[in-house]
Design a protein around this nucleic acid. Structure first.
Lengths: 209, 209
DNA sequence: AGGTCCATCAACCGATCGGTTGATGCGAGG
DNA sequence: CCTCGCATCAACCGATCGGTTGATGGACCT
């Protein structure tokens, strides 16, 4: 019998999950949580075989909750179940200790199969997530900008000229230009506009709003 | 007895919804659809009182399906049920004829109450959605860019110079500059970079990825 | 010690941008 | 018919950008 805690902030979704698991002879739902904090507390107390965890929850999200569980209860496995393939969060969740990552869009049999794999100590990845992981492994080293470079670029994104940026940061225009040249090199771009859009794509600049 | 068709592309979510509705004495689920096309076909055939419609579905989305249903079956009411408050789609869905818009995060009693309101011919809006609508009514007229302006700006966002854009679009550089001047006026910005970021914020340019 | 990264700065110059002023023509709607 | 929005184009000019070449100094690591 696989003992499971279900964590999802949407009551209607949680009831769908619980309904599915309860219909399986070898699975018992021993607890339900509506956020990360509750999930960690419940799983620590009840020591289920698997926590079925939504990735996006208010307050403590699924990835952070997974990390906390890994520390408090390394014997409890976590299967992430989420709506979208958001590749920004996949590595985070897996690095945090999750044993699997499935999509809510998956057929119900596939979710049950994934859960059973994870309970057996295996890894369960939706095929599309596995493909994203493989692609990620092939990517070049992650680009980083210095704090000052990021600061200058953010002001560029707001439409400021080099002269205005220099005044705002109490440096010379030459300094601003030098930072920008460095940014262009790191991002492999040729102009400020593309530098801004690429930095946003890479998550190096916030996409305001 | 309120007869309902449920349309959601996630099997696990759909079973949660169906489970909730089936537990109510006055509600009968007469059909389930996993996309917009299926929802329209089922509702046209079965003529339920209400279609409970997910907003984001592959192929024909909830808003388009609602519009088609309004044309084919004006007697059938639509209650949109979705994950996020995405204000880009609210007006679209309501303009298309939806009688309500609720969040999946809502307590189950609230979803049932909303469904009953809609079945009675009333409007059911989650409080947060009502607030968004009120704010929307207060906003200044929406900025729009012509197709050509949008095209030029998208190429700017990719780091192309005016000269390159002119070559790509088979026009002169003067034409490109004129389009950009117009874009700057409409968006009330002073340079191309800010034009790009502001257009993205306003949803006039896609935020690639 | 040396090397790397980061922050700062200068001068010069060609390329590009943005503004200005003017123009034409087309299509849609009243 | 007129008006409006859109697309197209030119020339000129000042402002700004981006590249180049060089430099200093500090912090951190080996």
């Amino acid at each position: 019998m696989i003992r499971v805690v279900v964590a999802d902030d949407h009551p209607i979704v949680r009831s769908g999950i619980v309904g599915l698991l309860s219909s399986a002879d070898d699975i018992e739902v021993v607890g339900e949580a509506s956020d990360g904090v509750e999930a960690v507390a419940l799983a620590t107390q009840l020591a289920p075989d698997v926590v079925l965890m939504d990735l996006r929850m208010p307050g403590l999200g699924g990835a952070e909750a997974t990390a906390q569980l890994a520390a408090a209860r390394p014997d409890v496995r976590v299967l992430i179940l989420t709506t979208y393939e958001s590749d920004e969060n996949i590595l985070t969740a897996i690095e945090a200790g999750a044993s699997g990552y499935l999509l809510k869009a998956a057929p119900q049999e596939e979710i049950l199969a994934g859960l059973r794999s994870v309970a057996r100590g295996e890894v369960a990845l939706a095929p599309s997530i596995a493909a994203l992981l493989v692609n990620r492994m092939r990517e070049p080293a992650k680009v980083t900008l210095s704090d000052r470079e990021t600061q200058v670029l953010a002001l560029v994104a707001e439409g400021n000229s080099n002269r205005k940026i220099a005044a705002a940061l109490f440096v010379s225009e030459a300094t601003v230009k030098t930072h920008l040249i460095h940014v262009f090199e790191k991002l492999d771009v040729k102009d400020r506009t593309r530098a801004v859009t690429k930095a946003m794509e890479l998550g190096l600049l916030p996409r305001s709003r």
